[in-house]
């Protein structure tokens, strides 16, 4: 075993340790959801539930949790679809189309990310009121569509697509729309997958905005609904953890199912043809 092999092995080992560090809170969240309230928050903690119980999940079922779950799925999926389409178009324009206003528009997008969301909350809310978006699902979807972060990300990805590919397509008589649809999108699949995942997660976990917009209990999203189960009397950590597990699972599933778009070498053959 030569030196570089040893280093690789050690680094792989480090990777495993890091993985444990990252996984532990998630594992703990799941295991606590099966613990009774008073045991859940002990330090030192019980590493596995000594007396596992399904109580917390049963309590959850007794609420509107199923409806909240569906609401969240609907909102996040719709948001993701809308965002992927609209931001990919914008990113293409800013990455590959040469027009003078492009640079300016791009800097505005990036610049807007520097203002902390907390300062924008009230004016954004007021606009939502003006547009009659209060207490509607649209109210959760529409404000999330212009996502500067996603536009920025996709634009950077698209910048690495070689110009020759686009040039040759144009020479073959492809329209702009065609280039976007038949060349840019397929080549950007890893990027699109990343956007999809991030948007879904962000929309799903966007607690404060959901809190502000939704008024009816039946329309609540999962994070919001679970929060209303916490009463002042005593902190039912087990129940909260059960809620958190249910809230996080769909996202994990989405993440895993989108993994296949990250496969390396997707662009093989695109250049040389």
């Amino acid at each position: 075993m030569n030196k570089s092999n040893l280093i690789v092995v050690m680094l792989k080992l480090l990777l495993v340790i890091a993985a444990v560090l990252f996984l532990f809170p998630f594992y703990w969240m799941i295991s606590s959801s099966f613990k009774e309230m008073s045991i859940a928050f002990q330090i030192p903690p019980q590493f596995y539930p000594h007396h596992p119980t399904l109580n917390n999940y049963i309590k959850l079922l007794d609420t509107n949790a199923a409806k909240w779950f569906l609401n969240s799925v609907f909102v996040s999926a719709s948001t993701t679809l809308a965002v992927v389409f609209i931001t990919s178009m914008a990113a293409y324009s800013l990455a590959k189309i040469n027009f003078r206003a492009g640079k300016f528009i791009f800097s505005i997008f990036v610049g807007s990310m520097t203002i902390p969301g907390a300062a924008l909350l009230i004016p954004q809310f007021k606009i939502a009121i003006e547009l009659n978006l209060i207490n509607t699902y649209l109210g959760l979807i529409v404000p999330a569509i212009a996502a500067p972060y996603m536009i920025f990300l996709l634009r950077q990805f698209m910048k690495t697509v070689p110009q020759e590919v686009l040039e040759s397509a144009k020479m073959d008589g492809c329209s702009e729309m065609g280039i976007y649809y038949r060349i840019m999108l397929p080549l950007s699949t890893p990027g699109l997958a990343a956007i999809a995942i991030f948007t879904f997660v962000q929309s799903w976990n966007d607690y404060i905005w959901q809190l502000l917009i939704i008024k009816n209990t039946e329309m609540m999203t999962l994070p919001l609904g679970v929060a209303t189960l916490i009463d002042a009397e005593a902190v039912d950590w087990g129940l909260i953890m059960a809620g958190s597990v249910v809230t996080s699972l769909p996202v994990v599933i989405i993440f895993i199912s989108f993994q296949k778009y990250f496969v390396q070498g997707l662009t093989v053959g695109a250049v040389k043809g």
């Binding site: 178009m89 914008a90 324009s93 040469n98 027009f99 924008l120 606009i127 404000p143 536009i151």
Partner: peptide, 20 residues
């Protein structure tokens, strides 16, 4: 085309970012 492709995003952006 530059404007066309970026227009939808710009619209939502103006509403929910620019004005705020």
């Amino acid at each position: 085309y530059g404007f066309l492709f970026v227009a939808p995003a710009l619209l939502f952006f103006a509403l929910f970012y620019l004005y705020p």
